[in-house]
Design a protein around this nucleic acid. Structure first.
Length: 478
DNA sequence: TTCGGTTTTTT
DNA sequence: AAAAACCGA
């Protein structure tokens, strides 16, 4: 039996690991012989490149692989880290490996996406039995459907069904202390610290501003739940304030379990599943959004292949203007909130959620550029890039996805800016050249700059009113 | 079980 | 402003 880590870089609430340890424990008790416990992780730069995994996310992954190797060592499991360019080579390697070591079963946690699933099917075709667990969501995918037995296409009914399911069925979760009996393994195995991988330094330092997940569990999560949860519903939309949890990078690489987060939330706030109107519900709502998009991709796998969720928009002919796209990427649109947001992304590898909606709306509705270009740029840049959530968010912004609003949604970047960054605090953090512009002018400073003969900021690349009309016509055509 | 009318919908 | 989901017949 072999344990194969993919997008589940954790020991805490990892059902594949737990099953693997239990099986070996049983064998150990029956035979009294210390089992060899092997685990595997592939470093596949070619595959990461193809899936546009950002350098900062790769760095976070590699740091956690390093950490995981030490943590597994404490449980007597030796993690081998193997460089393999792409999925095909992973399949070949595993085929040879299993034959060589006479392994029939490989234990994994399931991955949602199309290519990943195809790779797993290839392994099965080689005669390798994949024992797969599901731990990327709280409510298993496929369990929540409407009365027509279809996946919900609107968030709120999905959320109601989700809450009902959790209230009725609870949810699986493997507490940390359930692993403690297995720490005996490492003593008996005389596990020696360090292996080949540890001597190779992959770590680029790009993600150093983000602590390892063990510190996140010890410090960041308790602090968030105790100090920020109460004000989350008010502060989470204000980019100048650190009002969000900052946990998405760990969820994206599987270092954090969503089920663990729900446990912690319920410990802190026992009635949260019943309290829709409580301010403390706002954060759970975001966790349920994550579930919504994963369930959606499970039911509609073609989303992973760049398909519009609403096929009636397939006929739209998007702009191919690379120069305009580049200006958006670089944060040179002349709309300060958009430019500051893109600079935050380019500089830190992360962007505040409110800003993601604003810049996505701007690219699709104001510039009429294909949402897939924006989706790709986000994946290439974000530390927390996640196919399901990123695609869901972009298609929502482009109106090709799930959005039940009765009006056609075109964000006004200036009004968004005034509403969520009223004093321009965030704008000035990333556009310090606008420091001298008064608060009420900073959201669209062009008149002010002209009057005062200041040449410190580039012009707006598109007029809002014009762009709004153009977008309405553009979508009307579909 | 299928239908048509009514309520609801990430601002 | 329009589409999803529910609900009662």
């Amino acid at each position: 039996m072999l344990l194969w880590f993919r997008n589940d870089l954790r020991v805490h609430d990892n059902p594949a690991l737990f099953y693997f340890l239990q099986q070996h424990w049983q064998a150990y008790q029956q035979q009294g012989e210390m089992p060899q416990m092997r685990a595997l992780f592939f470093i596949s730069h070619g595959q990461w490149l193809q899936h546009r995994v950002s350098d900062i996310k790769i760095d976070l992954i590699l740091r956690h692989v390093d950490w995981l190797e030490r943590e597994l060592g404490k449980l007597g499991v030796r993690l081998e880290v193997v460089e393999c360019d792409n999925f095909q080579q992973q399949v070949d390697y595993l085929g040879d490996y299993c034959r060589e070591h006479n392994i029939r079963q490989v234990v994994v946690n399931d991955e949602l996406e199309v290519n990943e699933r195809a790779r797993d099917r290839q392994l099965t075709a080689l005669g390798i039995e994949l024992l797969a667990f599901e731990c990327d969501v709280i409510v298993p995918k496929g369990k929540l459907v409407n009365q027509d037995r279809q996946m919900f296409k609107v968030f709120t009914p999905f959320k109601k069904a989700w809450l009902k399911y959790v209230r009725q069925n609870g949810f699986d979760y493997i507490a940390k202390d359930k692993l403690s009996p297995f720490s005996r393994f490492s003593l008996e195995a005389g596990y020696e610290d360090g292996n080949e991988y540890r001597r190779i330094k992959y770590h680029t330092g790009l993600s150093d501003a983000w602590p390892l997940v063990d510190e996140v569990e010890r410090r960041v999560i308790p602090e968030f739940l105790e100090e920020k949860l109460e004000s989350y519903h008010e502060l989470r939309d204000i980019p100048a304030i650190k009002g969000t949890s900052g946990l998405s990078p760990y969820l994206a690489i599987g270092a954090l379990s969503p089920r663990y987060l729900l446990c912690q939330l319920i410990n802190q706030n026992p009635d949260v599943l019943n309290a829709h109107d409580s301010p403390n519900f706002a954060w759970l709502n975001e966790l349920i959004w994550r579930e919504f998009y994963r369930h959606l991709m499970h039911h509609f796998p073609s989303l992973a292949k760049g398909k519009n969720f609403r096929s009636k928009y397939d006929s739209l002919v998007w702009s191919q203007d690379k120069a305009l796209f580049k200006l958006w990427c670089q944060g040179r649109t002349g709309y300060p909130i958009v430019d500051a947001a893109m600079r935050q992304l380019n500089k830190t590898g992360w962007m505040h959620n409110r800003l993601r909606m604003i810049v996505a709306s701007f690219l699709t509705k104001h510039l009429l550029i294909d949402w897939r270009w924006g989706e790709n740029y986000f994946m290439e840049s974000l530390i927390d890039g996640d196919l399901a959530a990123n695609n869901g968010g972009w298609q929502w912004a482009a109106s090709t996805g799930c959005d039940a609003q009765p009006y056609f949604r075109i964000f006004n970047p200036v009004l968004q800016s005034k509403k969520f960054d009223p004093k321009g605090t965030f704008i000035r953090k990333y556009l310090p050249e606008l420091n001298s512009v008064p608060d009420n002018e900073v959201h669209f400073p062009h008149d002010y700059l002209r009057k005062n003969k200041l040449d410190i900021y580039w012009p707006a690349i598109v007029d809002h009113k014009f762009a709004r009309e153009r977008a309405l016509n553009f979508y009307q055509g579909a």
